[in-house]
Design a protein around this nucleic acid. Structure first.
Lengths: 190, 190
DNA sequence: GTCTATATCGAGATAGAC
DNA sequence: GTCTATCTCGATATAGAC
């Protein structure tokens, strides 16, 4: 039932989805929904907090792995790609209705979580610059914003645009680490 | 007045913004708004169609310039960066309430425009691959999705996250063309 | 061109029978 | 655990006075 609601929220947006539609999808009437849930808000909370907790766990695990900056970032990309895919509805909700959730006291933990995520990226990017493996002319925070967005957004596409989670993650990592420019013509296997 | 509404739509989302709030911001009462506009929808339409027309003009100009694939893409990034910045509210509306607009008959032109934009990117990416200047292993459509998103999204950030439009566009182009990896230690000026 | 109403509608949520 | 019925509220939009 939470899952049904999540699909609807992802599809039409959280605010645009009515409790009547959720009840319809579950094959009951709207009044009956309130036997299972306090409110529409609590359904949203269950979906979003579960998502956020999993994402933060990914970031903490990557940071604690003690790898090089590039390894930590690669691990973040890899592990969150799967977490984001598993929680696609939650992510879609955040993308679509962020302006709503971010203003609701009950969902204040979302802002905190994003802050932690930003700090994780910036830390690794700056470490990488200090060690000379990332371009010194990158603005760490700006780069984080670009990368986080490009990492998060594809997960919002329907699984069924024809790409697997790993395909997207691979394309993304290659893009991020190498750019789209072809290597300067050393012999490279396809 | 359209501009006032646009700011509110961008800030709180189109659906979440009430006509009373728009009227408030304009210093009149909600009833008086309808002397100036048919409906809330027509305000949204004015904002969005103006945006879409400008963006499409950028893409057509870039394609007609007859440059190399890399030049065409660079021109798209540069010109749309400014267009997106000028129309930040419209873009925010699309990001936040896409699920709503895309389902409304009146806003059907939005889907068509996105289709044209996708074709423009894919065409240039494939041309670049054919000419050997872009990595042959890139999936053109997938790459387009990643790049379009990363190009559009920063424009949604408030102008005031401390970056200028050009800073963002530069960071983006460097990221896209080179990746974040430091060049393999040839002497390079900082 | 703005005001004071007010009509209308759809939303979240509740009460109590079954 | 689901139903019917209904409450309440806030939103878009309208009508007509000033």
């Amino acid at each position: 039932m939470v899952q049904l609601a999540g699909e609807l929220f992802a599809q039409k947006g959280y605010r645009a989805t009515t409790v009547r539609e959720i009840a319809d999808a579950a094959g009951i009437l709207s009044g009956s929904l309130y036997h299972h849930f306090d409110s529409k808000e609590s359904i949203g909370d269950e979906i979003l907090s579960g998502f956020i907790n999993d994402v933060l766990a990914d970031y903490r695990a990557a940071a604690d792995s003690g790898g090089s900056p590039r390894d930590v970032l690669a691990q973040i990309v890899r592990s969150t790609s799967h977490t984001l895919a598993r929680h696609r509805p939650a992510l879609a909700m955040l993308q679509n209705d962020w302006s709503y959730f971010s203003g609701q006291p009950r969902f204040g933990y979302l802002r905190k979580a994003l802050g932690e995520i930003e700090r994780a990226w910036v830390t690794q990017l700056e470490r990488g610059q200090a060690e000379g493996v990332f371009r010194a002319d990158l603005d760490a925070r700006l780069t984080y914003r670009l990368l986080r967005d490009v990492l998060w957004i594809p997960s919002q596409w329907r699984l069924a645009e024809g790409y697997t989670t790993d395909q997207v993650a691979d394309a993304l990592m290659r893009l991020v680490f190498e750019g789209i420019t072809a290597p300067a013509r050393s012999a490279e296997p396809q």
